[in-house]
Amino acid sequence: MSKLGLITKGLIKENPTFVLVLGMCPTLATTTSAMNGLEMGLATMFVLILSNIVISLIAPVVPDKVHIPVYIVVIATFVTVLQLLMQAYVPQVYETLGLFIPLIVVNCIVLGRAEAFACKNSVGDSALDGIGIGIGFTLSLTVIGIVREILGSGSIFGWKFIAGDGILAFVMAPGAFLVLGYLMVLFNKLAKR
């Protein structure tokens, strides 16, 4: 597969949210606004790229029977590093996403890419795969966030265009399921063409 293909497949053909349907917990929980979705996507991308790189490096020497624990330790390390860095340098972002950062450890996207791609491919390809899937995840979360923010709060990236509130259900959990479902239909219809 071409190098460019490695990146673009994460956007459409293997879009983690709308096609692979992985990592639903952060998707539903953090997309209350466009900014939150974007930040969560970037945080996951950071972990994904680094863990893909390291796992593709160590995969040849890790015995098969312990590969899952080894990968989990690697991923958990990067997540904790990210958590400490966010707490120290962007405390406001950490406050909104706080609870969901440690959950990146068990995000199926990260472990899924380690298992399905990084352990069988070269370091460079794994890094590109991490970037591609990461961008796909970030864009998906941002789009869901934008739709929910427009409908639920009447604003885009915090910029309000109506006075008062929007349809509040969209900021809460039911709205997350509704928006995700309709976007998934739309996405797959357009992607099939």
Binding site: I58, P60, V62, D64, V74
Partner: peptide, 30 residues
């Protein structure tokens, strides 16, 4: 391609990975 899954290799690789990871975490925490 992966190393043989005998007890020695498994213990060794897990211990090494955990050591390196704790060192990194300790550094970042400090």
């Amino acid at each position: 391609m992966a190393a043989v899954s005998n007890l020695k290799n498994m213990v060794l690789s897990l211990t090494l990975v955990c050591l390196v990871c704790s060192a990194i975490l300790g550094g970042v925490f400090a």
